[in-house]
Design a protein around this nucleic acid. Structure first.
Lengths: 345, 345
DNA sequence: TTGTAGGCGTTATCAT
DNA sequence: ATGATAACGCCTACAA
């Protein structure tokens, strides 16, 4: 009934097996040059005592913790939790634990979180996107923590990354609308400060429209926080414009849901009166009525790939600095010919 | 250009400030009995060298890691990622890091994950639900790791918990349907093995119906995996029954979405031809057409409360063994009078 | 108030 | 192949 629930130490195992602590350690880490006789004797002692190695002590001696950190903007966006799922599963497979911190798009918070993780002791770090404070990079370098960024496609020597193009599919979505005859096109996007992905998508939209000779007026770009209700508000604002846009490009699926809802509430038919696009391809996108035209972001695959690549890098293996995954647009029922075209035909 | 990027140690700070390592340590942990003069001198040295304490070494000496583990079934269900969000934010506030592992409703996997966490060294653990293997409890006790369970309302001396009733609101939902005149009621639920929450909900449904004199025949209970498509399949199966059920109780919102979609596809109007209920109150529930009648699960609050309570417990404070939160039913448009009633009136 | 020295539980470098 | 023993980096009695 002692206060400290006497757990056993490596030393106890050594004593029980009548060998040295070094030998126990060797068995534990199945090092070479261990006789089968000794191994089994030690193993028996381990089993009998129910000995569990002390991770912290091991970490101190090894200078390897067995954990990596993931710093993500938020987990409330399913696209990130899906990525984390993939990451965690694969890390577990590699026998690494996952530490998580969120910073809600506040890059200073990201720095603090990173500082905490480094102090905690992590063997590697995953960051989202290309927008970070200089301090972030400095910390990473100072403590030479292996790291990887993701979700963007910027080739930057400072930022090894596993990502996808945000601008390109955004561009394709806009071209798709243009091809359908739309000329009055508006954009609903997430705040672009500290969010290169949102910026890249907006840039893609803009670029495609401009090469089609369509300029995106400031009042045609509405920036709102993430959320269904927010998307609805954005549409209501856009529908007060004259002429009304015939198509809405949304920065993500959730905003698109909000836009579609508001449209229905306004009596607008989709896609006959209004075309809508999203970005992410959340599970429900294909089930909406009509199904949402969007971009399929390989969230789970990115998570898996991040795990494999970071582990390889931590092992000192040479891994590609830049890995790009496909983020194809998927065209569904929420986009259709522009009303004018339909009418005038 | 040495291999090891010379980071500074506490010893270096001591030397730079011309004090003992003990003094530096005292400043670091702002212990009492430190003169202001010494403190500022040490602080200056710390700042100048950019010294960061070595968490692992500190953990070994202190026997306190500054991290807690959360073992959740999955992160692909938004209800859990929302809880994790709340948990992580609050833990950060308490200056704790969060380790995450998922076990996909495989309790043996949960044990393995827990073992990993304990070995890793965590100061506390969060578990979901009341269904666990005996080994889970044994590990927790053996290593006396403070722990908390959540999401259920079972009063069990072994399981301190912060949760809510699953059966009660399920019951209320069923009663609500009965009150609306429904007699042919079916249930679509998630697999109940290793999932006490799903079981409790099913039990609540069943209980309410039975006290209304309605028996839930086996073919009226369809069990499917989590997912929208799965919900749709379940409804298709149920609609082959004669007579067709006039109301569907779903184990969670996602299944309910699937059910509603399939219903629409079959030309059934909701709620005129079919009433549908969910459980969770995901963000989109209120935005569906019609809006979903469901149960509002306080996911984020649970996360916050878990953090506060676990931290208090780790500090040795006396905390309630059992905390219950409200999970009120919210009645919306997806439920309405039974067709027969409407017709016969 | 400040300093000295031993300990936290493993690993890893030497010998043997 | 196995065994001593010195790190690993910090905390904390205990001493001054």
């Amino acid at each position: 009934m002692t206060k400290s629930s006497q757990r056993f130490l490596l030393e106890d195992v050594a004593r029980a097996a009548a060998v040295s602590t070094a030998s126990v350690s060797r068995v534990l880490n199945n090092a070479p040059h261990v006789s089968e006789r000794l191994r089994s004797r030690v193993q028996a002692a381990i089993d009998e005592l129910g000995y569990v190695p002390h991770g912290t002590a091991r970490a101190l001696a090894t200078r390897r913790v067995g954990a990596i950190a993931a710093l993500v903007p938020t987990l409330d966006n399913p696209i990130f939790s899906t990525m984390i799922e993939g990451l965690e599963r694969r890390l577990k497979w590699h026998d690494y634990r996952l530490l998580i911190a969120t910073y809600h798009y506040d890059l200073q918070d990201e720095v603090e979180a990173l500082r905490g993780m480094i102090q905690q002791g992590v063997d590697g770090t995953i960051l989202v996107g290309h927008d970070h404070l200089a301090e972030t990079l400095r910390l990473l370098a100072l403590h030479d923590v292996p790291y990887l960024s993701c979700w963007h496609a910027t080739r930057d020597p400072d930022w090894p990354t596993i990502g996808f193009e945000n601008a390109t599919p955004a561009c394709q979505l806009a071209e798709h609308l243009v091809m359908l005859g739309h000329r009055d096109i508006a954009v609903v996007c997430a705040p672009t400060t500290s969010n290169d992905r949102a910026r890249a998508r907006l840039k893609g939209f803009r670029q495609a429209l401009e090469s089609a000779g369509i300029s995106l007026a400031p009042e045609h770009v509405v920036t709102v926080e993430y959320g269904i209700a927010e998307g609805s508000l954005a549409l209501e604002r856009l529908m007060r414009l004259t002429p009304r846009p015939s198509a809405i490009l949304c920065g993500n699926d959730t905003l698109a849901f909000g836009v579609m809802l508001a449209a229905q509430k306004l009596g607008l038919r989709i896609p006959e009166d209004l075309s809508v696009t999203g970005f992410d391809d959340l599970p429900q996108a294909r089930f909406m009525t009509p199904a949402l035209t969007t971009v399929a972001v390989p969230a789970a695959d990115i998570g898996t790939c991040l795990a494999d690549t970071l582990v390889a890098r931590m092992k000192g293996q040479n891994v590609p600095h830049y890995q790009q995954m496909e983020a194809p647009i998927v065209i569904r029922g929420s986009t259709g010919p522009a009303p004018d075209v339909a009418t005038s035909s």
